[in-house]
Each structure stands twice: as C-alpha cells, then as structure tokens.
C-alpha cells in the first residue's frame, strides 16, 4: 500500500470514530439524564454516577468534535470580509488561516499533553467513581492534535488546487433554507 493511501485509510477510520463519539455521546447523555430522573422520581434513588459520566461525555464530545467540525466546515467564524473577496483572495486567506490555526492547535495539543502527564503523575481521581482523571482529559490533546491535522490537510488542499476550500472536505459552511421562500425585498 502507498503511504498516502494508508494515511487516508487512517484518516477515514478516525472520522468514523469522531462521528461515533458525537452521535452516541449525545444519545448516552440523553439516556443518563432520562434514566436519572426516572430513577429519582419512581424509585427515589439518585444515580450518583450520572454527574461524572455526563462530564466525561461533555469533554470527549467537545474535543473530538473539534476535528469533525473542521472536516464538515462547521466552526463559527466572522466571514463578512471573506465573503466579499474573489476566489483567489479567498484561497490565499484560507492558506494563511489554515496554517496558523493548525499551528495554534498543535501548540495547544502539546501543552494539553503536558497537563495530562502532570495529572497522571500526581494521580488525581474523580470524586465518586475514583477513575484516574487523566483518562478523562486525555481527549483534549488528542482532539486538539487531530484538529491541527485537519487544518494541515485544508492548507494542502488550498495550496494544491485553484479553488478556495473551507476544509479538506467542504467548500462552504452555509446551508440554504429548507423552505420555499416567497419573493421578498425587505
């Protein structure tokens, strides 16, 4: 197998993993919330683990979502000036933006890694389930790093092609409204 093919295979595997986390993280969060309220009202018994697991889900969802949101071009930005530019200028902008952003994400990933190592070294645990805390926050460096990789891919795509790409997979972040609009001029 060519190394680049292997890379894209891994990239797709990671994509599926991110998608899995975002989908089932939300479903699990809902299940925990609903389960806890039923247990509390029907059996007068609170699940004391709900809080910690929910917090864990929020962390993994947020950080693994960074890279997935880049893939699908969903990160929020102020696009007022970008939208006014022609395609060449947009491409140059995207080259700068993706390179700088990826460097910042790699930088943060590095420091997040140091923070994880420190936490592991001193052995902080969660308050009720006593899970090592580093296992919860390790998703921060991983997510930030994967986000950096996505912006590097965006950078390459914009350098190579002659069109402006918002991410490696998406051209634009806008969606048209899903309704038949009557003509208006207000």
């Amino acid at each position: 197998m060519k190394p680049s093919n292997l890379f894209f295979k891994i990239n797709n595997l990671i994509r599926s993993f991110e998608k899995f986390i975002l989908t089932y993280g939300i479903i699990a969060l809902a299940a925990l919330t609903v389960g806890n309220v039923i247990s509390r009202r029907a059996f007068n018994y609170s699940w004391t683990f709900t809080e910690e697991i929910s917090q864990f889900i929020l962390v993994i969802l947020t950080f693994m979502g960074i890279s997935y949101a880049i893939r699908v071009g969903r990160h929020i930005r102020m696009s007022a000036f970008y939208d006014l530019m022609n395609e060449t200028a947009q491409r140059i902008m995207m080259i700068i933006v993706s390179l700088v952003t990826s460097l910042i994400l790699f930088y943060l990933a590095y420091h997040a890694g140091l923070y994880v190592l420190e936490t592991k070294h001193f052995g902080r645990v969660t308050p009720t389930l006593m899970v090592p805390f580093y296992l919860i926050i390790i998703w921060a460096p991983i997510g930030l790093f994967l986000g950096g990789v996505q912006y590097i891919l965006t950078f390459i795509k914009n350098i190579k092609g002659d069109e402006a790409w918002l991410s490696y997979e998406e051209k634009s972040d806008y969606k048209d409204f899903d309704v038949d609009l009557p003509p208006t001029d207000n």
Partner: peptide
C-alpha cells in the same frame, strides 16, 4: 444525534 453533537462541540 450527530447533528446535535456537532452543534454542541462547536458551541462548547
């Protein structure tokens, strides 16, 4: 759920 997850991640 996936769509919810993406919005959540972006805002969080």
């Amino acid at each position: 759920a996936l769509d919810t997850g993406v919005i959540t991640a972006v805002v969080f």
